[in-house]
Amino acid sequence: MPPNTESVEVITEQFEKKLNLKELAHKGRYVIYPTTKYPDYEAFEHVDPGHKGDPAKKALLDPATAVIELTPHIGTEIHGLQLHELNEQQKNDLALLVAERGVVFFRKQEIDVYQGREFGKHFGPLHIHQNFGHPEGMPEVHVIHFDENSNRSHFKTFSHQDGWHSDVTYEINPAGLTFLKLDTLPAVGGDTLWASGYAAYDRLSPPFQKFLEGLEAVHSGLDQSNAALRAGHTVRRTPIETVHPVVRTHPVTGWKSLFVQPGFTRSIVGVSKRESEAILNFLYAHIAGGVDFQVRLKWEENTVAVWDNRSTFHNAVFDYLDVGLRHGWRITPQAEKPYFDPNSKSKADSTVRRYVKEPATEGYNFLL
């Protein structure tokens, strides 16, 4: 486990107060920026609970009132379940489903941030960001809070094509299964898009796939740390850059996924600057333009998105800053150190058993 996990839990228990984040958000900014320093993360071995999932996922899907595949390659919506009530086998099935489908949506969720922290621990050690603010006593919680009063300097030169990212990929053990609950939304806007890293790889030509499989890329957290320093905030760990494979293998599905994105990937190792920029700019445009392997969520209040940061990219749409408040919280379990297995397969080369449970019918429609 990460070296600071135990000490952080002690700190959290010592200062924890029962907070209603939604109420706090309507009163204004509530995150704190403590000067707490944490030990640097060290590599650890991750055993994914998706390995214990039932391929048919009966424990998870049988109690659902509807299971809807939103696109062929990514995105499933499940009705009739409450995440905080899932038992261990249902959580394992969920880990497997998210590994296969990339992102799964649950609406009308009652789970609160305290239950969310406990829920997240099933999927891996909870990541603590080195410089973002967080609710008092809850360093594992990443807050989403934007409204008409938000600082817009970043958005003056921001292109949403560059907004695609996977969370904290600069860590030695980046994020795995991750979930976000939004409890407050503007009247319109504020959607989020996800793209499949599996399908992004599959859409490339075989010669280019083989070329990429031999490459590694630098992922950097320096921009975030430098921004924190400019704002007068503490950087709680040593700023880090890490090298990861451009194509990684998912440990549960065994499928190959493209693993670069404009959010944190900075260069390709072992090639010239011009070559690196050409490769990465092509791949970034490939992800942004991949409308055939993207899904877009129109949030409702108390919707939870559960996604796999190892095999997806996501992009929040900041079109609502003149409309109203968008608020929620994210829990980010860490997973394995990224690796590439040359014997792994693409999703397209694997037989995938798909299932759709219609709301008005009994059982499932099975498709191969």
Rank of each mutant, 00 (worst) to 15 (best):
P174A: 00
H160R: 13
K210M: 09
F155Y: 15
L185I: 02
L182N: 02
K156T: 13
V168S: 15
S159Y: 09
W194P: 01
V188H: 08
P207S: 11
A195T: 01
T184V: 14
D183F: 07
F208S: 02
T157Q: 10
W164K: 05
F158N: 06
D183Y: 01
G190L: 04
F158L: 08
K181I: 12
P206A: 10
S159D: 15
R152N: 09
N173L: 03
G163C: 09
P206K: 12
H165Q: 07
S196V: 07
G190C: 06
L193A: 07
H165F: 05
K156Q: 13
L177P: 04
T192L: 01
E213Y: 11
P174N: 00
Q161T: 14
F211D: 10
L193F: 08
F158A: 07
E171Y: 11
R152C: 00
F179G: 03
G190D: 01
E213A: 03
F155T: 06
F155H: 09
P207T: 10
D191V: 01
N173E: 00
S166H: 05
Q209G: 06
T192H: 01
S196H: 08
E216G: 03
K156N: 10
L215E: 04
D191E: 12
L204E: 11
W194L: 02
A187M: 03
T178N: 13
E216Q: 15
S166P: 02
E216L: 01
L177H: 03
S153D: 15
A200G: 11
S205A: 14
Y201L: 04
G176H: 04
W194T: 03
A195C: 05
L204P: 12
D162W: 08
S205C: 07
R203Q: 14
G189Q: 08
P186C: 03
D202C: 09
L177A: 03
K156Y: 10
K181A: 01
Q209A: 08
L212H: 09
W164D: 04
R152T: 14
Q209H: 09
S196A: 05
A200L: 04
S166M: 02
E171L: 13
G189V: 09
A199I: 04
L193V: 02
V168Q: 14
A200S: 11
D162A: 13
T157V: 13
P186F: 08
D191K: 11
P206E: 13
P206T: 11
H160W: 11
F211T: 12
R152V: 14
L182Y: 03
T184I: 09
F179Y: 15
T157K: 13
E171C: 05
L185A: 01
P174V: 01
T184C: 07
T178Y: 04
H160K: 06
P206W: 11
S205L: 10
T178I: 12
H165G: 10
A200C: 05
G176N: 03
P207C: 07
S159E: 14
L182P: 00
N173P: 07
S205F: 07
Q161M: 11
L177E: 08
W164R: 05
S159R: 14
S196K: 06
D167I: 09
Q161D: 15
D191C: 00
F211S: 08
G189S: 01
K156D: 13
T192E: 00
S166E: 00
P206L: 10
V188E: 15
P206Q: 10
F211I: 09
T169G: 02
D162S: 14
E213S: 08
